[in-house]
Simulated assay, not measured.
Amino acid sequence: MRVRLILPAVTLTLLPHQQAHAAGAAVVVTEIVEYECTTKATGDKQDVEVRVQLTMPTGARAGEQLSIGWRGTYVEGAELSAPAGGLAAGTKLYAYASISDFPGLTSGTGVGELGTPEAGEIIPLPAGVVPVLTTPNAAGTGTVRPAAINFGTTPSERAIECEVLNEDVLTTHALRVAAASGEPGDDPDPTGPVPAPVNPQPTRTVTATATATAVETAQEDAPGNGVMRTPRGGAATGGGGEAGPDGRTFVASGLLLVLASATGLLLRRRRGAGPRPDSAPAR
């Protein structure tokens, strides 16, 4: 086993202005990953070094599939060769990413198309970016590192398995997943607008008014009740039709004045009927 100190090369790549404004900045990290590759049919082992470039997603949300970009190129002199029996037609590359410290999420898988090399030939890696896909079930933050790569016709039918040897020295990339669309944690103002106040007793007010009107009408229509009807449409003074002066007060005042006048007249007449001191006696 070879031990080598690897210094990862970190490159910060900004998207074009139009995309960076919408999706933010994508962090691209390239580093050398050491693999021990085993041919399952024979048990033969090869030491392989791949320069792996990971591109972390931006704008990831819970419940939605996210994609981590994986791109690999061999370090010269440390390529993977096809086994003696060659590779079956339809063999693919399966690239994995290890996800840690994230609730319910441990890995992502990417599939890349390959050629069909002959025995002893270098197995080509996909020329483009392989999307490593996974779907988080909840919001959170975790870390991502390059993981194993396998070669086979299906994920379970592997011809060559490559395990990471220098996992502890690989760069960890932050993976941030926001809450799903529509959840409270995603709303910039979870409280929302304050609703307008509602009249606490609308029904009681209407019922009280209707009851009072019915009682007044019954009293007014009852014969001989002595209640005077108040004209409708009067001024809103706060006292209704009972706020003005009572007519009975004027009637009583008038009666008192008449009685006082009659009493005064009677007294004057009695004084005038007595004998005069200078009158002569009757003969």
Rank of each mutant, 00 (worst) to 15 (best):
A235D: 10
T263A: 14
A210Q: 15
A208Q: 11
A252D: 10
T171D: 09
N225I: 03
V198I: 11
D246C: 08
T230I: 05
A262L: 15
E163I: 09
G240F: 06
T172S: 15
G185V: 10
V227A: 11
A159T: 12
P231N: 04
R270S: 09
A210L: 15
A235S: 09
P188L: 02
P231M: 02
G244L: 10
T203K: 12
G274D: 12
G244F: 06
T209H: 13
D221T: 13
A252W: 09
R229S: 09
P275M: 03
A252C: 04
A180Y: 01
G264I: 11
P195W: 04
E163L: 06
V198Y: 05
M228Y: 05
V251M: 11
A222G: 04
A260Q: 08
T205K: 12
P231D: 05
R271T: 04
E216R: 15
G241S: 02
L267V: 09
C162S: 02
L267D: 02
V215W: 05
V227P: 02
D246I: 06
A208M: 12
T207M: 07
G264E: 05
T217N: 01
P184N: 07
N166V: 01
R204K: 07
A222S: 12
T172I: 11
A178E: 14
A222W: 02
A243V: 08
V227S: 07
P197D: 04
E161N: 06
V177N: 00
L256H: 05
E163W: 08
G272F: 06
P200L: 00
A243G: 10
G226Y: 01
L175F: 02
A235R: 07
A178L: 13
A208W: 13
P184E: 09
G238A: 05
A235Y: 07
N199A: 12
P202G: 01
G233A: 01
D246P: 06
L266A: 13
R248T: 08
R204N: 04
A262R: 14
A222I: 02
L265P: 01
L265K: 03
V169Q: 12
V206W: 11
Q219F: 05
G224S: 06
L175P: 00
A159V: 09
G182I: 01
V169L: 08
V227N: 09
P193K: 00
N225V: 07
G241C: 01
T172P: 06
R269W: 05
V215S: 03
V206R: 13
G244P: 12
G224H: 03
E163V: 12
R158W: 07
E161A: 06
G234P: 01
T213F: 00
P195G: 03
M228A: 14
P188F: 03
R268K: 12
D168G: 02
